[in-house]
């Protein structure tokens, strides 16, 4: 699929499965900095499309193959970008599947436009929290990375040594962290507090790793969101999307079948895929 321009920014968009009017639209929201739509493209987007959905994946601004901008990296801008892209594609009401930072975007989108978000699968979602400290862990990790990137010139060294992929990934992270307002935008992003979570009207499937640093966010979702189901993946930490793909699909495909009207693949029940 070609790029889509929304809010003056060019976004790289991929669609899997035909856009038949009868198919539910499922939109995927990826995580920050080193992430992009490929983490869904190679894992759960294909099986979700096979189950009868029209899967829409896009790179957040400044990520993957979407246009870098100097600013606009907070959750509120990401929500506006999401609806801008959906408007450009002609999709009004959709289901969201979000990983990590994508989760706070999904929650804020559902609160801003409950008429447009029919349901959400939140995988290792950041965002639910009692106070503004919610983003500290994320910021600390990113800030430490930023300092290392700035002083080591690691990307240049890796590229010179022929480590093209790692060098390019680190150069992209360096550009985002050190040459945009991303860290400041994140620091200003408010958590989604319990009173707001109680107002989420759509059904939510939350999936967290047992040993995840953000597992408490999953328990908070379960306590506060009226239509929330929580699935904890034993033995996993934050990387359930990549390392727990089969179990994740076994949980989310039946959930999507129930709430979005997709099919339950035979392979999902047996876990053979």
């Amino acid at each position: 699929m070609p790029d889509v321009t929304a809010r003056g920014v060019r976004f790289h968009v991929q669609a899997i499965g035909p856009p038949d009017p009868g198919r539910p639209v499922v939109v995927f929201l990826h995580g920050l900095v080193l992430d992009n739509l490929s983490s869904f493209y190679y894992t759960i987007a294909g099986p979700v499309a096979d189950a009868g959905a029209h899967a829409v994946l896009y790179d957040l601004r400044g990520h993957g193959r979407s246009e870098p901008t100097p600013d606009g990296y907070g959750a509120d801008d990401a929500v506006a970008d999401l609806f801008g892209i959906l408007d450009a594609l002609g999709h009004h009401r959709v289901h969201l599947v979000a990983n990590s930072f994508g989760g706070v975007v999904a929650l804020k989108a559902a609160l801003a436009r409950p008429d447009r978000i029919a349901g959400m699968v939140l995988i290792e979602a950041y965002g639910p929290g009692e106070d503004a400290g919610w983003v500290e862990g994320l910021l600390n990790t990113l800030t430490a990375s930023a300092l290392g990137l700035e002083y080591d010139r690691l990307a240049d060294q890796l590229l010179a040594a022929g480590w093209r992929k790692t060098g390019r990934q680190i150069a992209a992270a360096d550009a985002l962290i050190n040459r945009t307002t991303l860290l400041d935008d994140l620091a200003r992003t408010e958590p989604v507090r319990p009173a707001e979570l109680a107002a989420v009207r759509c059904p939510v499937l939350a999936v967290y790793g047992q040993h995840s640093d953000v597992a408490e966010a999953g328990r908070l979702l379960l306590r506060t969101v009226p239509g929330c189901t929580l699935h904890v993946m034993a033995g996993h930490a934050h990387t359930v999307l990549r390392e727990g793909t089969a179990e994740l699909l076994e949980v989310m495909l039946p959930w999507l079948a129930h709430h979005a009207g997709t099919r339950v693949p035979v392979t999902a029940a047996g876990g053979a895929r």
Binding site: M1, S38, Y41, Y42, G46, D59, R164, Q169
Partner: peptide, 26 residues
């Protein structure tokens, strides 16, 4: 080649443009 995952997705686009939906990398 050190191809990044996202570049493999971009390659899939070009294959589809050239060969049609029959060559479906996904």
């Amino acid at each position: 080649l050190g191809l990044e995952s996202i570049e493999f997705v971009a390659l899939a686009d070009r294959l589809r443009d050239h060969y049609g939906d029959g060559v479906d990398l996904a």
